[in-house]
Design a protein around this nucleic acid. Structure first.
Length: 275
DNA sequence: GCGAAATGGGAAA
DNA sequence: TTCCCCTTTCGCC
């Protein structure tokens, strides 16, 4: 389920298995043969998550592997107990990274490419502040929003404005804030924006911790933890017919080519002149 | 069993 | 806006 939380979770999980180790790289499927050959045998220096992107920095200027999962990309991580031989690839494995302790397979990514420094810089420059980066420039994000005419539902999905939020978090964060997605972003005003930002960070962190998106409040359903919530209670409005809390019929419409969901009873459309 | 839609995004038109 | 990529899942027949 790749939104920003997935990427940071992968980085965290893979670091102890791959970083500071020699990497045996291959492309069992064949579509990344050349790139894999370039990094094969090199030392991996760091894994950098930015929004929905992952960058693998290799030593000796061997290059930077850029991965974007898109909607279908998946990692499969297997530890090599007693350096056991990795299992044969499952499905179309674009990239396989093997170290002394693990085997990491990547299937179905939108992007898996080897970059040199300038191309890396270009991609980085297109990615807005990452909600999961403690040093993210919140001021810059608000400045963009205050200047724009776009709806908050569009701005939150624009990775050049703020990175890490996908279609599920967009719908759910705005529901939690009681703000209708078609509200002009600037109409939130600074205070509501700050509240929304803080909630976004805490929700994404829950996602990183438990490995899936759960945006409902467990206490509301008699559960102690987010993990305990069953699949039908993980979202308030996303892909639902009726709002989980109010029971109102969930409204569906398209913003920037993606389906957006909102509860007409609980999400108010703010006036652009207020705030 | 088949088609559509899905957590995403870039390029083309 | 529309197409295209990539893969899985779900609803409908």
């Amino acid at each position: 389920m790749p939104e920003g939380h997935t990427i940071h979770r992968h980085a965290k999980q893979q670091r102890p298995l791959l970083v500071d180790r020699a990497i045996e790289a291959s492309s069992p499927q064949g579509r990344f043969d050349t790139g894999a050959a370039m990094i094969d045998g090199r030392l991996l220096e760091s894994i950098e998550p930015v929004g929905k992107h992952l960058f693998y920095h290799f030593a000796d200027d061997a290059g930077i592997v850029h991965i974007h999962l898109g909607m279908y990309g998946k990692f499969r991580v297997a530890k090599r107990k007693d350096a056991a031989e990795p299992k044969p690839p499952r499905g179309a494995v674009r990239l396989r990274l093997v170290t002394d302790v693990a085997c990491v397979d990547l299937n179905g990514p939108t992007a898996c490419e080897l970059l040199e420094r300038p191309a890396y810089d270009t991609i980085k420059s297109r990615i807005g502040p990452d909600l999961l980066d403690p040093k993210a420039d919140r001021e810059a994000v608000w400045r963009r929003m205050a200047k724009s005419k776009a709806a908050i539902g569009a701005m939150l999905m624009d990775q050049s404005v703020v990175s890490g939020i996908g279609n599920i978090y967009r719908a759910e964060l705005l529901y939690r804030a009681g703000i209708h997605p078609l509200t002009p972003a600037k109409a939130l005003g600074r205070e509501r924006f700050d509240t929304l930002w803080a909630d976004a960070v805490s929700q994404l962190k829950i996602g990183v911790r438990i490995g899936k998106i759960v945006t409902t409040d467990p206490a509301e359903f008699g559960a102690k933890t987010h993990r305990q919530l069953t699949a039908d209670r993980r979202f308030y409005v996303y892909r639902r017919d009726k709002c989980l809390r109010s029971g109102a019929k969930v409204e569906r419409f398209t913003i920037a080519g993606r389906t957006c969901y909102a509860c007409p009873a609980e999400q108010k459309r703010l006036d652009a002149t207020r705030g």
